[in-house]
Simulated assay, not measured.
Amino acid sequence: MTAQSLRDRILVGGGVTTISVGAYLPWLKINPDLSPDAEIPTILIPGMNAGFEAFDFALLGLVGLVLLSRAGSRKRLQTAITLLTGVGVVLFCASYISDASLVGFDSTFVPALGWYLTVLGGVLLSVAGGRDLSSMIQRRERTAALND
């Protein structure tokens, strides 16, 4: 096993694990910086409870797709799925935190550990896919240069 292969496996394994754990943990918590007399609405936003809820199954499906693609032998497909899943997870997390007026970094409800872990997992998968893509492009350029 080459060092690059081991590095990719660690990145993908770390990304898959952190997304899976992050999807289970709560994504939102009450802002600890609110004043003691602040009025907190009694609403339930998806992602406030621990456990798997609606969008968590989609995230776990994407994680399963990455793992399934890694079992195959098509390197280009693995790279594309890993990169697109990582970027998609990060964009979903950004969209989730900016959708509602009560949710945000300085709002009534702020991101909790699950959200941060899911973002980290998406970044790890993006890095793994991006590294694979850049090495594939460099190999193609070297091969083209040798053929000229």
Rank of each mutant, 00 (worst) to 15 (best):
T2K: 15
A3W: 10
Q4G: 02
S5F: 15
S5I: 14
S5T: 15
L6H: 00
R7L: 11
D8N: 14
R9T: 01
I10S: 09
V12E: 13
G14K: 02
V16H: 03
V16L: 04
V16I: 03
T17D: 00
T18H: 01
T18Q: 01
V21E: 00
A23G: 11
A23P: 02
Y24D: 08
L25N: 06
P26E: 11
L28F: 08
K29Q: 15
D33S: 09
S35E: 08
S35Y: 06
P36G: 03
E39Q: 08
I43H: 06
I43T: 10
I43W: 02
L44T: 11
P46H: 05
P46K: 11
G47Y: 09
G47E: 10
N49K: 14
A50E: 14
E53I: 07
A54H: 07
A54V: 07
D56Y: 04
F57L: 15
F57Y: 15
L59G: 02
G61L: 08
V63E: 11
L65A: 13
V66D: 03
L67M: 15
S69G: 08
R70T: 12
R70G: 15
A71N: 07
S73P: 02
S73E: 14
R74W: 09
R74Y: 07
R74A: 13
R74K: 09
Q78P: 02
Q78W: 10
I81L: 13
T82E: 12
L83W: 00
V87Q: 06
G88T: 11
V90W: 05
L91T: 10
S95C: 05
S95R: 04
A100M: 05
S101P: 11
L102R: 14
V103S: 04
F105H: 13
F105K: 06
D106T: 15
T108E: 07
V110S: 06
V110I: 12
P111A: 13
L113P: 00
G114W: 14
W115C: 03
L117R: 14
V119N: 10
G121P: 04
G122P: 05
G122R: 05
V123G: 05
L124A: 06
S126P: 00
G129R: 03
G129H: 04
G130Y: 08
G130Q: 12
G130L: 12
D132W: 02
L133K: 10
Q138H: 02
Q138D: 02
Q138K: 12
Q138N: 03
R139S: 12
R139Y: 10
E141W: 06
A144F: 10
N147G: 04
